[in-house]
Amino acid sequence: MAEVEVATAASPTGKVRQIGDTILEVEDITLSFGGLVAVNDVSFNVREHEIFSIIGPNGAGKSSMLNVINGVYHPQKGQITFNGKTRKHMKAHHSAAEGIARTFQNIALFKGMTVLDNVMTGRNKMMKSNFLTQALYWGKGRNEEITHRRKVEDVIDFLQIQAIRKTPVGRLPYGLQKRVELARALAAEPKLLLLDEPMAGMNVEEKEDMCRFVLDINDEFGTTIILIEHDMGVVMDLSDRVVVLNYGVKIADGTPYDVCNNQAVIDAYLGVTE
């Protein structure tokens, strides 16, 4: 009998879901703040079910790029096609409605609220009943709360945070707060998940856990993931493809292997002597 094959980070072929067609097309994006060009004429595409990383030295424009994708920043030039819809300007809540969720580089949770309530906010945009029925926990509002709670519990179970369900977020250690933030993003059942340095500031064990979760999310839900990360080991292990930015300019893209052997990338990271 064949040995069991567990999909490991190093073998993307172990994936259950095959990588599909392009889901996100970024074309000629230029974003500048006054005279400062943060992103300069960058194009790339992300395919369905893929884990796609954006890397680059500090100030390369990675977070700006994410902010463009989910509509926080509006680029001066270029267009983005997500899920077949092309658009130039978009508000953040539109992107959320389209199925894009994200986590932040600096944790952005409601510190005084419990983990459960924080994760519930991830489903806010799907709640249709009016304020009164929600407040009274009655009729449609009640039914809706029950369905959404069920989904949220799935996520809580998935990320193994049952034990802290009722704990106020402010009392949790940093690593767990990051996980709660991921839970909130997942609760929105996104098609595309943007993770902005999910492993920053974590110890080795927490990083390993987070890697496992990223892979599991990709596997179980088929979520397409765009990842910004500084830990090259993590990037090389997790990613199907990588794009490298430097001073707002794309200098390479391709498989992790191609990218780390690319001379331009090595120069950007290590510097070149004239």
């Binding site: 009998m1 064949a2 069991v4 094959e5 172990g14 259950v16 599991d216």
Partner: peptide, 9 residues
């Protein structure tokens, strides 16, 4: 069933 989708034995 969590994580069992890879097991085809």
């Amino acid at each position: 069933p969590r994580g069992m989708m890879h097991y085809y034995q």
